[in-house]
Design a protein around this nucleic acid. Structure first.
Length: 538
DNA sequence: TGACATCGGGCG
DNA sequence: AATCCGCCCGATGTCA
């Protein structure tokens, strides 16, 4: 394995060969236009390459545009963010002159050819030095293997995220527009409501005797409801559903459609869908737990009602796969809880709990497990806890301990070593309440974060399998990842490869399980569907 | 006019 | 009084 570091210099790019100790070796100066050619040549060579760079978002989009796919990289920005908080990392080894610069480094802005390139704070940082520090931290870590796996998985995720934006999710604007027209009426002129909303609005105003009511204003709506004799504390849908009043159904319907219009209406189509693709911007490591975030287009909350518009190209298919009950399975694995892993042997973990006689019904199982992971102590889920704690002592013990540690103000960590942030100052008068809230956060952090690590390993392995499956051509000409949603992937593939893709998705899931939990027997069964449209899955 | 907070609701 | 974890986003409302 050869490591080549790319850095920007004055008017040119430098490709630096790194020695085994991370020291800078031979260096090649490249004009910006020659970088892609250089990368393609080395990537296609006999020696595997790991590209080391400050930030994947600052390098990879241009390479992809030039048709260059990269097998592996080290993303120093993401690695730094993890190591900075990890209890497995010696902070003094990570400290350097430009540490504050690395701390503050944000993902690169999307390249805009219309703008003159501004000064990039990343150009003030020395990637060779930062890489050596990160290597030193890994070498000295008591959990070197786990931490190294985490950094590799995070970097691989950065490659996937860039590729997802590059290829985009196939999106039929015509299908989407037809759907909108069916639900809302024809697209109205600027500043006007569609006919269906207009009709519902009049109905609501009449029912509450408020001819000027704007239901989009919670304050105004609350006053009108209370004036109508409905003693509600807020205007959430769940609250409104409990009310018996002739205006409520129209109000709820108005809210639902108004939300669709605002979030995923014609304006969304105009902004986010071009050339038949929804190009979401994914942000790896964007959530404290290690989950991805997204920016723009609400990529991680595409409503099911518009998913029929996500449709594979002619002659292509989607392979949609999601993990059933990822987080409870991860909890069984990371705690080494044999009884819970036994329940997880079933395709439906909750059914497995019923079959083992732990709980009476599937609903009880779900309620209890979710309560254990989120910190629900009241009502049904709270009543389930003693029984779960007896039956699954290690699993429940792990989340309880994470909660107690959080309440004491301590850092908790995921299986691979991502650390939780330190709590801020708790206001004295709210001490207990804030403390318990932080405990619920740390309780959930260890499970959600380790789930994210499983998903990263799944993605990374799947990405490589898909590439090998494809034969020739660019990423978008082969089976490729088209969307990722915490515990679900959408792969876009030529129809004749769909079955092999489905097999690859399953194989990648078992690889991920082995990477995280070794020989401990916890299963990660997938629901896999080969479909024309995302909406046809599950 | 822009910055910021709050609410409600979409996703996992 | 009483529904738990993490996000993103648009509309509204307040303030400078």
């Amino acid at each position: 394995m050869e490591r080549i570091l790319l850095r920007r210099g004055a008017g040119a790019v430098e490709a630096v060969e790194l020695g085994a100790d991370g020291a800078a070796g031979r260096s090649t100066r490249l004009h910006a236009a020659a970088v892609a050619g250089f990368a393609a040549e080395r990537e296609g060579g006999a020696t595997p390459v790991r590209w080391v760079w400050d930030d994947t978002t600052r390098w990879y989009p241009a390479l992809l545009t030039a048709g260059v796919r990269v097998e592996r990289c080290t993303d120093l920005r993401l690695g730094h963010a993890i190591l900075r908080r990890s209890p497995f990392a010696a902070q003094d080894l990570l400290a350097g002159e430009d540490t504050p610069g690395w701390d503050a480094l944000q993902p690169g802005p999307p390249p805009d050819p219309a703008l003159f390139p501004l000064a990039d704070p990343a150009d003030l940082l020395d990637p060779v030095a930062e890489h050596r520090r990160q290597q030193a931290v890994l070498a000295a870590s008591p959990q070197r293997d786990r931490l190294a796996l985490l950094l590799a998985a995070e970097s691989s995720g950065a490659l996937v995220a860039a590729e997802l934006t590059h290829t985009g999710l196939p999106w039929r604007a015509d299908v989407h527009a037809r759907l909108l027209t069916g639900l809302l009426g024809a697209r109205p002129g600027a500043g006007r409501r569609p006919a269906v909303l207009e009709r519902l609005l009049e109905e609501v105003r009449a029912a509450f005797g408020a001819p000027a009511l704007n239901p989009d204003s919670p304050g105004e709506l609350l006053r009108v409801l209370q004036h109508a004799g409905l003693p509600v504390p807020d205007t959430r849908s769940w609250t409104l559903e409990q009310l018996d009043h002739p205006g409520i159904p129209a109000l709820l319907e108005y809210r639902k459609l108004s939300r669709l219009l605002a979030a995923n209406g014609w304006a969304w189509l105009d902004t986010w869908v071009r050339d038949g693709r929804f190009r979401a911007v994914f942000v790896p490591g964007g959530v404290v737990t290690g989950r991805w975030a997204s920016s723009g287009g609400g990529a991680l909350s595409v409503p099911t009602v518009v998913r029929p518009a996500a449709a594979a190209d002619e002659g292509w298919r989607f392979v949609v796969a999601d993990v059933a009950q990822l987080e409870p399975r991860v909890l069984a694995g990371m705690s080494g809880d044999d009884a819970m892993a036994q329940a997880a042997r079933a395709a439906d973990l909750y059914a497995g709990m019923v079959a083992a006689g732990t709980v009476a019904t599937r609903a009880d199982a779900k309620l209890g497990i979710l309560g254990a992971m989120y910190g629900g102590t009241r009502g049904e889920s709270g009543r389930m806890m003693p029984r779960l704690a007896r039956r699954y002592p290690r699993a429940i013990g792990l989340v309880e301990e994470a909660a107690r540690a959080g309440e004491r103000g301590e850092v908790v960590h995921t299986l691979l070593g991502r650390g939780s942030p330190l709590p801020g100052v708790w206001p004295h008068e709210e001490g207990d309440r804030a403390r318990r809230a932080w405990g619920r956060f740390t309780r959930n952090f260890v499970v959600q974060g380790t789930g994210a690590e499983w998903a990263l390993c799944w993605l990374a392995d799947l990405r490589n399998r898909l590439w090998r499956l494809g034969g020739e051509g660019d990423v978008e000409a082969r089976p490729h990842l088209a969307f990722f949603l915490h515990d679900e992937v959408v792969v876009h593939t030529p129809e004749h490869l769909a079955d092999e893709v489905a097999e690859a998705v399953r194989a990648a899931a078992s690889t991920a399980g082995r990477l995280l939990f070794g020989a401990f027997p916890v299963d990660f069964p997938l629901d896999v569907a080969v479909v024309r449209s995302w909406a046809d899955a599950g």
